[in-house]
Design a protein around this nucleic acid. Structure first.
Lengths: 202, 202
DNA sequence: TACGATAGACGCAACGTTGCGTCCAGACAA
DNA sequence: TTGTCTGGACGCAACGTTGCGTCTATCGTA
């Protein structure tokens, strides 16, 4: 969602048509979807609007993505991997609290966070979306988060009453606030971590 | 189960004559919406399908409800009021834990719980739905839940680190599990209560 | 008490609009 | 030649609206 370029206005003359997939068109579509969602909400996110905004033919979208949900999923995976990395270094209570803070920020302020909320929502309406979202994003990420917790438990940094399920409780509490339009201040995140992780975090 | 105030008791601005609103049709619509959602998901929930299922003309629906969201909201409010009452008696840790268990069951097993999840989802896509959902359901209910917690705190039955915000954390953790298709076993609810309410529940 | 007039509620059917997903023709690069 | 891109037309489904005819509960009048 960063660069505001579309294929159409990035270059006056179109030189990107050939036998290989047009990378500029791919990025333009991803960014257009991201921008439209952030600016006008999921309601305004139609394939036709994405095509218009990206300066790309509708058929180009359907050639590469089966549905607009998969477009959003692509942007989510790229963005969350980049902007919300899971700490892999020494597992401390501090580190986990930092990650949860970043997650809270991501889901309430980052446009890619809106994408996540929209996909969770869409998953309620459509089982196919639910399957994709779990397979490609929620599942793998939860796996890594549980690892993070498990390592911290092994190291004696935390001792959650819920075990590794504590991560769901933390994520869930934060996501729910975001879904209902509430803010998620750091002090709330910290209090959640204190209660659920069973650790002193200085 | 009624307590509707659509037209009948709003204002007798003119002398009433003619037929009154058909209560059977009203119930048929609410049940049809509920059934269709439970059976085929939100995706299959079209106004035309509701009309067909209810044995009612489409126009009859549009005469009384501005959108299908308001149909769902009506069923949610009636059903949650009936099947998920908020305890008003003596505020104990036990009572709160019982309520959270009932809530977990409601949101994972009761058809009306599916309605709640669908409306939370739809609220992500449409600001008007978000507003309605907050005004007519989430707001009032959260208010009562916070009261329940506050009274328990006053009575010394619990002492949550989050204060009255603990209710959001509990509800959020449970709703998130439901939204992501996970089960919410009682032992998980109990562990959440133990960690977040700061009370031994014997 | 009886009866006709009236105001709505309802069913049915058709309308124009929107977004979907598909398909095709033509242009162009490798 | 092959594969991608654009631009536009297409059929489909659901939307929300409208007009028309029927039915029925209530009111005014005799």
């Amino acid at each position: 969602m960063v660069s505001r370029m579309s294929v159409a206005n990035s270059q006056p003359r179109r030189t990107r048509s050939g036998s290989r997939r047009d990378e500029a068109a791919r990025l333009a579509v991803l960014h257009a979807a991201d921008d439209l969602l952030a600016e006008h909400g999921f309601g305004a996110l139609t394939v036709e609007a994405i095509a218009r905004r990206a300066g790309v033919a509708k058929q180009t979208i359907y050639r590469w993505w089966p549905s607009k949900v998969e477009i959003l999923l692509d942007t989510l995976i790229e963005d969350s991997g980049k902007r919300l990395p899971i700490p892999t270094d020494k597992p401390t209570a501090e580190g986990i609290r930092g990650y949860m803070r970043a997650f809270a920020r991501f889901v309430t302020r980052d446009p890619a966070g809106k994408v996540l909320l929209a996909l969770i929502a869409e998953a309620q309406h459509d089982p196919a979306t639910a399957k994709l979202l779990h397979e490609r994003h929620l599942g793998p990420r939860r796996e890594q988060e549980r690892d993070m917790l498990a390592r911290a438990i092994d190291a004696g940094a935390i001792s959650p009453g819920l075990g590794a399920d504590a991560i769901d409780a933390l994520v869930g509490a934060i996501v729910y606030r975001a879904l209902t339009g509430s803010s998620v201040p750091y002090r709330l995140v910290d209090a959640l971590c204190d209660d659920l992780l069973g650790a002193r975090t200085g």
